[in-house]
C-alpha cells in the first residue's frame, strides 16, 4: 500500500499534471489554429474591451438576466465553482506537501473554510445531479457522460472528506483520493470540464460580437 501511494503521489502525479497542462495547451492551440484557418471573424472581431466587459458581467453573481431567472442554480453554481477551485489549491495539506517537495508555499485556507468548501462542492454536485434527473429540459440533454462527470468531480472531494474524518479504510481511501484527483486533473482537457479554460475565450468572443458588431448586451 505504501509503495502504491508513493507511486501515485510521485510519478503518477507528474503524469497527470503534464497531461493536464499539455492537454489544455494543445486544445487551446488547436482551436486557435482552426479559428485562424476557418473562423476568421473570431480574430477580426475579438476586442479586449468587450471581451472583458462580458466576462466580468458573467462573473458577477446575479449579474445577468439568465442568473436572475434561476437564483438557486446561480447561488449553488457560484459557490460550487469557487469552492471547487479554491479548496484543492489552498488546502493546507496540499500546500504543505508542495512545500516539502519544492520549498515553495502560499496562503492557505483555514481548516474550517476548507471543510465548509468541501461540503459546498459535494452539496453542489448533489444539486447538479438532482437537477439533471428532475428538470425535464436538463434530463433530456443529459447523457451518461454528464452524470459520470459529476461523479468524477465528487470522488476526490468525498475521499478527502473521508480521510479527514479518518473513516474506515483510510489507507485505501487516501490512495483513491490521490488517484481520483489525478484522474480528474487529466480529464479536464478532454471532457466537458474543458469549459474551465475555454470559458474566457467563448465568453470573450460572444462579448466582442455583441459589443462591437451588435451594439447590444449579451447578458
Amino acid at each position: 500500500m505504501t509503495k502504491a501511494y508513493v507511486f501515485a503521489a510521485g510519478p503518477l502525479l507528474w503524469v497527470s499534471v503534464i497531461v493536464f497542462a499539455a492537454g489544455c495547451l494543445l486544445r487551446l492551440g488547436r482551436l486557435a489554429w482552426l479559428a485562424r484557418k476557418k473562423d476568421r471573424p473570431v480574430y477580426a472581431y475579438m476586442s479586449a474591451h468587450y471581451a472583458l466587459r462580458s466576462i466580468g458581467r458573467w462573473l458577477v453573481p446575479m449579474g445577468t438576466e439568465s442568473m436572475r431567472k434561476h437564483p438557486v442554480t446561480t447561488v449553488v453554481s457560484f459557490a460550487f465553482h469557487a469552492a471547487v477551485v479554491l479548496v484543492p489549491l489552498f488546502l493546507f495539506a496540499h500546500v504543505l506537501l508542495f512545500y516539502e517537495a519544492f520549498g515553495i508555499s502560499w496562503w492557505t485556507l483555514p481548516e474550517e473554510a476548507a471543510y465548509a468548501g468541501t461540503l459546498v462542492v459535494l452539496a453542489g454536485l448533489v444539486y447538479f445531479f438532482a437537477r439533471r434527473l428532475i428538470r425535464p429540459e436538463v434530463r433530456y440533454l443529459s447523457g451518461p457522460a454528464d452524470f459520470a462527470l459529476l461523479v468524477l468531480v465528487a470522488l476526490p472531494f468525498a475521499t478527502g472528506l473521508w480521510a479527514f474524518h479518518h473513516g474506515p479504510g483510510v489507507r485505501v481511501v487516501m490512495l483513491l483520493h490521490v488517484l481520483s484527483g489525478e484522474a480528474l486533473l487529466a480529464a479536464i482537457p478532454f471532457t466537458k470540464l474543458s469549459h474551465m479554460f475555454l470559458f474566457p475565450f467563448l465568453r470573450g468572443y460572444m462579448g466582442s460580437e455583441f459589443g462591437s458588431v451588435r451594439h447590444a448586451r449579451d447578458w
Binding site: 461540503l119 448533489v126 445531479f129 438532482a130 428532475i134 472528506l161 474524518h165 474506515p168
Partner: peptide, 27 residues
Amino acid sequence: KPIRAKTILGAALVAVLALVSLTPAWG
C-alpha cells in the same frame, strides 16, 4: 421516471448526511 429519480436522490442525500454527521465519532 420522476419517482425513480427522487428515490435515488433521497438515498444519495441520506448517505451524504450520514457520512457528514457520523464520521467525527470514529476513533
